[in-house]
């Protein structure tokens, strides 16, 4: 069946045999966006986190049919080298990644958190950022999340000035 969804701002129509195919595999294998990772297939680790209509979703357990007509954002669409998202900028400034495999999931979860809670407390972070990182980069991630909140606030101020 055909499913239409907007991925990183571009309308895509994909032909999928099984509408219950997890969104993760459509993104990775059909659309060839490899930044969203497979970790466990059971929504237990968060490596596959991306945004559906700006909400964090664990895409390994999210049937593609639910994404019909929705806006999907992956790490590739969050920002790029010329125009990094504040979360990516903060991740670079704090030199967060080690092996790096879980990092896109964490960055997407953080972006979703900042949409809702622009200035998260440590408790907000503990409650909302529940992915698994084996290298143990949580310490730098926490710093990066606070920094991303600052960068995002500055960006909002600058943009409102420009307007």
């Amino acid at each position: 069946m055909e499913i239409s969804l907007t991925v990183n701002g571009i309308l895509k129509t994909v032909d999928i045999a099984d509408e219950n195919t997890p969104l993760l595999w459509v993104v990775r294998d059909t659309l060839d966006l490899k930044g969203t990772k497979f970790g466990c297939g059971k929504a237990a680790c968060g490596a596959c986190t991306l945004l559906v209509d700006d909400e964090a979703v664990r895409s390994c357990s999210y049937p593609v049919k639910f994404a019909e007509g929705k806006k999907v954002t992956t790490i590739e669409g969050l920002g790029d080298r010329e125009n990094p998202h504040p979360v990516q900028q903060a991740w670079i400034e704090e030199i967060v990644p080690q092996c790096g495999y879980c990092q896109p999931g964490f960055m997407m979860a953080t972006a979703a958190l900042l949409n809702k809670v622009p200035k998260p407390t440590d408790e907000d972070i503990d409650k909302n950022i529940i992915n698994v990182c084996r290298c143990g980069t949580y310490y730098r991630m926490r710093k990066a999340i606070h920094k991303a909140a600052e960068l995002q606030a500055e960006k909002v101020i600058n943009e409102s000035k420009e307007v």
Partner: peptide, 8 residues
């Protein structure tokens, strides 16, 4: 490898 890992 920072950029590669931050931009997916």
């Amino acid at each position: 490898d920072l950029d590669a890992k931050v931009y997916g």
